[in-house]
Simulated assay, not measured.
Amino acid sequence: MKLETIAIHAGNEPDESTGAITPPINLSTTFMRDEDLGYSKGFMYTRHNNPNRKQLETCLAALEGGEAALAFGSGSAAAFAVFQALQPGDHIIAPDDMYHGLRSQLKQIFIGLKMWITFIDFTQIEEHIRPNTRLIWMETPSNPLMKITDIEHVVKLAKENNIITAVDNTFATPCIQRPMEMGVDIVMHATTKYINGHSDVLGGAVIAKTNNEFFQRIRMVQILGGGVPSPFDCYLTLRGIKTLPYRMRGHSENALTLAKFLEGHPAVEKVFYPGLSSHPDHLLASRQMKNGFGGMLSFLVKGGAEAAIKVANKTTLFIQATSLGGVESLIEHRASQEGPDTKTPQNLLRVSVGLEHIEDLIADMDKALR
């Protein structure tokens, strides 16, 4: 089946008791045991599993082409579970440009748990592999500089050294980028973003190419740690997924048009968007982002941080807020959100391009820039 069909039907079976084509919300936290003390219906306690979570996980695995998926209460919880499934002494390679929250996890928590973390430019990855390297964590496109990692090259290198590979596919989604088809072991999403797509549910997911021992360790962290989404959150996320392929087309089309406009604007110093031919990794992005380049872009405003903040304050349709991936357009001065240790340029604005009419978005941005 094609993605449009998978998004609508995977995990969505009509309710057996009523025939309802929309799955009901199962709010019960506990489930009845059989006379032999078993659980023949497959559910015991909602921290372990829940009908709505099972439906969501089934759909997510199908979308990414993996064997199994795990849903979490946030994207941070999902990534945390992957890192926590490793052992003290393991070495993690991560990108030098990545979501600040996950970078903080690695620096403030996992280094303290006796793990080794190296943040690198992935064009130089070969020289950073060690005998104890256990996980290579990729984020492509990266947040917020939109760097592109050569997934196939990293996977080849990892397989030669028996290293697990993982991709944060939040910016691209499976509609645009298919990491598992390129050999990646683990895909992670902040489902809060494009997967749900409506800025009203916090969630995360980990999908495995193979339901192997390492993935079972992640499942153990999910169950014992309890960082799971509520049944209602699973229901809303599954509902949002049904329009994901069509939403991503609109996000990508709008973002490319806006990026071209910004690239020619006299108040803009530089635009970061892999769909532009001027992007240093445009050819690589064209090869591995098969269906557009996503709805995220960043740009540098001439005049420094003060000028950038003024632009963010003057937009009307672009709402000044953190997060991304909703139907509404957002703009953010990213460095001030990340704190004093940020490496993000002070004049950078990150934009989540929504589904409003592109002419309205361009007019709003042009007004703010002028």
Rank of each mutant, 00 (worst) to 15 (best):
G19H: 11
L27Q: 09
R33P: 09
D36K: 11
L37I: 10
G38A: 06
G38N: 14
Y39N: 10
T46E: 14
R47H: 13
N49D: 15
P51E: 12
T58L: 03
G65Y: 12
G65T: 02
G66T: 00
G66R: 05
A69W: 00
A71V: 00
G75H: 08
P88V: 01
D90V: 02
I92F: 04
P95F: 07
D96M: 04
L102S: 12
Q105E: 04
Q105S: 07
M115E: 09
W116V: 15
F119R: 02
H128D: 12
T140Q: 07
P141E: 06
P144I: 04
L145D: 04
V154T: 11
I163G: 05
P174S: 01
I176G: 04
R178W: 03
D185C: 08
V187E: 03
A190G: 06
T191V: 00
Y194L: 05
I195H: 01
S199P: 00
I207E: 07
I218A: 06
P229A: 00
T237F: 02
T243D: 12
R247L: 01
E253W: 02
E263S: 13
V268F: 08
F272G: 01
P274I: 05
A285V: 03
M289P: 12
K290W: 07
G292D: 00
G294C: 00
M296P: 13
I309L: 13
K310E: 04
K314G: 05
T316C: 11
F318G: 05
L330G: 02
L330E: 11
I331C: 04
Q337W: 09
P340E: 05
T342H: 04
P345Y: 01
Q346G: 08
E356M: 11
E359A: 08
D360C: 01
L369A: 09
